[in-house]
Simulated scan of single mutants.
Amino acid sequence: MAGTAAIDWTRPWLAPYRAQGEAAAGAIAQGLPVAQALQGAGPPAFVPQHALPAGRAYEAHVFETGTVPTRDNLHDFFNGLVWRAFPQAKCRLNELQATEIERAGVGATRGPLRDALTLFDENGALLEAPPELWRALAARDWPALFVARRGLWAQARLRVFGHALLEKLVSPRKAATAHVLLTQGVDGLDDEALARRLDPAWLATKPFVPLPVLGVPGWWAGNEAPDFYADAQVFRPARSVAESPAAGPG
């Protein structure tokens, strides 16, 4: 698989995944399939995609077997890296998906909970930040968030969780947007703490706030220019009633 050669591991959003990611990418460059390159000392076990029986729901299969069918592409490569970094949170997401599939089956639409689970799994991020930044983000007050209170980002930590978003950021585009959950406390980005917070009733409300990640100070050189944030197609104004998602359980 040639795609891993295009990854720039110096990008700030890849810092939490760099050590394991570079090692796995090196193994892939030597000819190993992605599933084999991702194997670690503990669960889950990554298996080739053909291990998924035809017609079987992916999430149900992962839940029942403890194995993750994996294709030789960037999407599944990044999914594996997130599994390695957040095994308990990924297990919790998978458990909730599988439970919903067992309850309601696989239909034309996922329903609010499965929709939210998929959104976070594919495109989510975790933000630990001073209250002033979170309020500005929830209000879509981009000038406050990125200009007036820019210095507060030194006290913030942002972790991209969604593997589809990590894949998109291999070729960064200004419009790349995460769906962010607020985290709190010293263990805010901790795997076990995140797993505990993933309450289905809360997630079904989609308590996420959109954040164009290339606007984050230090994440993209272009955002040093003040007019970077003037692009209303990316930095969209708030709706008439500002959304203020709750921090959630835990």
Score class of each variant (00 low, 15 high):
G40M: 07
T67R: 15
D72E: 15
A41F: 05
A54N: 12
T67D: 09
G55K: 01
T70K: 12
A41L: 14
F46M: 11
A54I: 02
Q49E: 14
V47T: 14
P44T: 09
H50R: 14
A54P: 12
R56Q: 05
G42H: 13
A54D: 13
Y58P: 12
A54W: 03
P53G: 01
E64I: 01
P43D: 12
L52N: 04
P43V: 08
P48S: 06
P48Y: 04
R71E: 15
L52P: 07
E64P: 02
P48F: 08
A60E: 02
A57P: 15
T67N: 14
Q49V: 09
G40W: 06
P48Q: 09
A51W: 03
A45M: 14
H50K: 11
G40R: 00
D72M: 14
T65S: 15
P44V: 00
P43W: 09
G66A: 09
T67K: 15
Q49S: 13
V68H: 09
G40N: 06
P44Q: 11
R71T: 05
P53E: 03
F63D: 07
R56S: 03
Q49N: 14
A57V: 07
L52F: 06
P44R: 10
G40D: 03
V68F: 06
P44Y: 08
R71V: 01
H50T: 10
P48K: 06
A60F: 03
G40C: 02
D72Y: 15
A57F: 07
V47A: 14
V68D: 07
P44D: 10
A60C: 09
A45N: 12
Q49F: 15
T65E: 03
V62L: 02
L52E: 08
F46V: 06
A41R: 15
A51M: 11
V47W: 04
P53L: 01
A60I: 01
P53I: 00
T67H: 15
H61I: 06
R56C: 11
R56H: 07
A45R: 15
G66M: 10
H50M: 10
G55Q: 08
Y58N: 12
R56A: 03
A60V: 05
